[in-house]
Design a protein around this nucleic acid. Sequence first.
DNA 1: GCTGAACCCATTGACGCCCATAATTACCCA
DNA 2: TGGGTAATTATGGGCGTCAATGGGTTCAGC
Lengths: 155, 155
Amino acid sequence: MALFVGRHRNRVDKKGRVSVPKPFRAAFAGDDFSGVYVYPLFKFPALEACGEAFMERLAESLDDLPMFSEEQDDLSVILENAHALPFDPEGRIVLPADLVNAAGLGGEAMFVGRGQRFQIWEPKAYESVRGPAFERARARGTTLPLRPRRPQGEG
Amino acid sequence: MALFVGRHRNRVDKKGRVSVPKPFRAAFAGDDFSGVYVYPLFKFPALEACGEAFMERLAESLDDLPMFSEEQDDLSVILENAHALPFDPEGRIVLPADLVNAAGLGGEAMFVGRGQRFQIWEPKAYESVRGPAFERARARGTTLPLRPRRPQGEG
DNA sequence: GCTGAACCCATTGACGCCCATAATTACCCA
DNA sequence: TGGGTAATTATGGGCGTCAATGGGTTCAGC
């Protein structure tokens, strides 16, 4: 599967349109739904986006939680606040007002790859929140506990 | 899988292009994505590069961690700072400004084999940082416990 | 008839592709 | 063993294409 990596900074025009970076769009090729699912993060002033496959996985994970439980109710807010945003012919999406507000977006949007999904940030907010993360990793001498290599596919 | 070994010193032209040494390129033959993933290292003023397989493994390791957890946020630093750099028809990649800055690259780049991955250094920085490593290993009488030979072939 | 959204079109600027050339390296033959 | 030659890789520059962007226009719903 194609991965989302790196950062891309694009403009948000007067109509609220913003181009999804081509490398990110490419990862959705073949999906039934030509667009992305976007929802606000509760942890950061930012949005997260994913494709159909991941959204289904998320829904299933929610179903694994006890029915009528508090956690299920809480985490369901993701689905409740998610928007399915279709691509226009040029590969742009229109961000609804509630998402713009949640992320504090202005004239520009920063697309940030996260592997299976990506995030959308107001550039300055990204800088101040995530900027220190790299320095922190350096200071801690962070090491990566990698998942063991798979015996077969050896992908 | 082919291994990355040895050092290669290539020029970086005005456009930021640099040839990936042929022996290194060969290791990526057969990948869906014809190019390399490059990200800055925490520990050194240098870049590290890997292929699709390793990057997917990294993304999967991330997904093994709980969504919205702190660890996941920390580890995704690599993905956020990585660039997918495609080969041009001549086997070169274009290094973006942030990577050039992170490694302090000028007119030349040193490619250093590291087995499953390789690094990209500014030649002088490599000399001063890694040069002593050989002497240090000698002085310490460093030893390396080898992993037992695997039963089959299976690279 | 009005509002809003989706589509179409034009511009521009970066990036990828193609070519030509130079520097190695590998190979062959004397 | 040495030199010469051929093939391959590295390098540099120019040009064409495509992605990003902005505005206009048509269509549908109210």
